[in-house]
């Protein structure tokens, strides 16, 4: 882990872009601007400007028809960022017993902000506790058991693309799926892929709108909500992307009498 000291050459979002390009190339052998935009869930315009900046740093090259290539330097940097990400994630999971999904998300932010020193110490520490004597190992096992009993909040972060990075305020916000049948809430944020978000917007699911959970389908998956005077059904996948204002009182004056048996 010696190549760590290159951190900070480019901004974190550019590092994320590099990672995305690297992974796309691994997966499908090329990366188009469009794929990058889809993957990172940003606009073509932002991709365009990011690529320009990366090209200026000599990390990427443009080929024809919107295809982006990594230069040698770019590839090395991407691999390094990736390795660092994986290490931090493993550290969080195996040492601190952070649930996989949260670890993934935290690794996304740590990887950019951590100084090379801290990173180095973490590596040493990790090596130390995994290779040293029995004693410390037993202590850690106890520690692990303790944390394994704690229920982890499901917190998906779609791999290292950090799709869901958002402010601390929203980190523990209630989701639409947390409502019980008959309860209402006010939409706060929508953190979904572009396609789903646009669809939700078109159906009127927007910040400050009141939604009431009417019922959950008999087999437990799609849910039915009421908003703007009509009924809409969503899968839980999509509904969990809708965060509610935390301070929302459960408004009893809602206009629906819902059916919950």
């Amino acid at each position: 882990m010696a190549e760590v000291n290159k951190v900070g050459v480019i901004s974190e979002s550019l590092e994320d872009y590099l990672e995305t390009i690297y992974l796309l190339i691994q997966k499908q052998r090329f990366a188009r601007m469009k794929d990058i935009a889809d993957d990172r869930n940003v606009s073509m315009a932002s991709v365009n400007s990011a690529m320009k900046r990366l090209a200026k740093e000599g990390l990427v090259e443009h080929a024809s028809r919107g295809i982006v290539l990594l230069t040698n330097e770019g590839e090395n940097l991407a691999r390094m960022v990736l390795r660092r990400h994986e290490f931090v994630r493993d550290f969080l999971v195996s040492v601190l017993r952070v649930p996989e999904a949260i670890a993934e998300k935290d690794a996304c932010s740590f990887e950019h902000f951590m100084s090379p020193e801290t990173f180095h110490r973490m590596v040493t520490f990790f090596e130390f506790i995994t290779t040293c004597g029995m004693d410390i190992q037993t202590h850690f096992d106890d520690y692990r058991k303790h944390y394994d009993n704690l229920e982890a909040r499901d917190n998906p972060c779609n791999h290292m693309h950090c799709r869901n990075r958002f402010g601390a305020h929203w980190a523990h916000a209630r989701r639409l799926t947390d409502l019980k049948p008959g309860e209402s809430g006010i939409v706060g944020r929508i953190r979904a892929s572009h396609r789903i978000r646009q669809r939700l917007i078109d159906m009127g699911v927007l910040p400050h709108v009141e939604v009431t959970l009417l019922r959950v389908a008999p087999l437990g998956d799609p849910i039915e909500i009421k908003l703007r005077g009509y009924n809409l059904s969503l899968r839980k996948d999509e509904a969990s992307a809708i965060l509610l204002h935390d301070d929302t009182p459960e408004s009893p004056e809602t206009d629906t009498e819902s059916a919950h048996e």
């Binding site: 892929s193 396609r195 669809r199 039915e224 009509y230 809409l232 059904s233 969503l234 899968r235 999509e238």
Partner: peptide, 12 residues
């Protein structure tokens, strides 16, 4: 490909 989002109106 990405699934079509299941965002479906339940009409009266």
């Amino acid at each position: 490909g990405e699934n079509e989002p299941f965002v479906m109106e339940l009409p009266p």
